[in-house]
Nucleic acid binder design. Sequence first.
DNA 1: ATGGTCGCGCAGCGA
Length: 288
Amino acid sequence: MRIATWNVNSLTGERIDRVVGWLDIAEPDVLCLQETKQTDDAFPALDFHARGYASVHHGEGRWNGVAILSRVGLDDPVAGFADGEPDDDQARLVTATCGGVRVSSVYVPNGRAVGHEHFRYKLRWLARLRAHLLADTPPPGSAEWPGQPDGTTARRVVCGDFNVAPDDLDLWNPQAFEGSTHVTPEERAAVAELEALGLRDVFREQYPAVEGLFSWWDYRAGAFHKHRGMRIDLVLASDDIAERVTWALIDRNARKGTKPSDHAPVIVDVGPGPGPMIAAGSDASSTT
DNA sequence: ATGGTCGCGCAGCGA
């Protein structure tokens, strides 16, 4: 099973072509999208359906917007937080079950500046994501969705633009980020709190201590060509998924060429194992 | 060089 996540920085005509073209090349079973900047009506679900992908989109229109595409089934979609509180007015979270895995696509607030109201919103949002993951977890032992022994983080991935670089290793130059958002102890602690639920940064586990692996590069000043980036797009996976990861890649090619997103897709391959998770290459959508 | 480029949408803000 191949799981990918990509902040596409809008889904207008040219960007749709890039995303559809990338689907044909990368053939993910599940793709989480962020920053679609579309209304639900404008989301190009048919373009994806034609490639065999079911989809769910949670959007506002002008900003934010998240989606999940899946060719291994897409069930029980939830837009926004499932913690029982009134939903956030920004479309930054969508969750669905794909091929036996509970998948969340997240677009964590940027934060703008340390101490800014939006920075406090970012920290609140991350704390609320943790509450969502606990509330969204089904009873342990569910046949369709086997739980972990502790019942907290059943077979799950949380994919998206976290707007947090978990470690200095994820920065092109740590000195350049002193005093900036994305690297503060508070933001990193909020991500660590998610990992404390039993979720693992599976891309980094494939490349421990390897420098220069980034998923975002500023459009300005030739940052991409100078290799000045950050790794802020993460795939956090529960233990039983994490143990089966066979391969991971950030597809820098998708950041090249005309009209790219400023993010590259992150791809994680999960091998077969015990339990009902659907194997790579299967096509649950053929039943519909 | 305290900039630089995008997207949205038509000014200037957000990233």
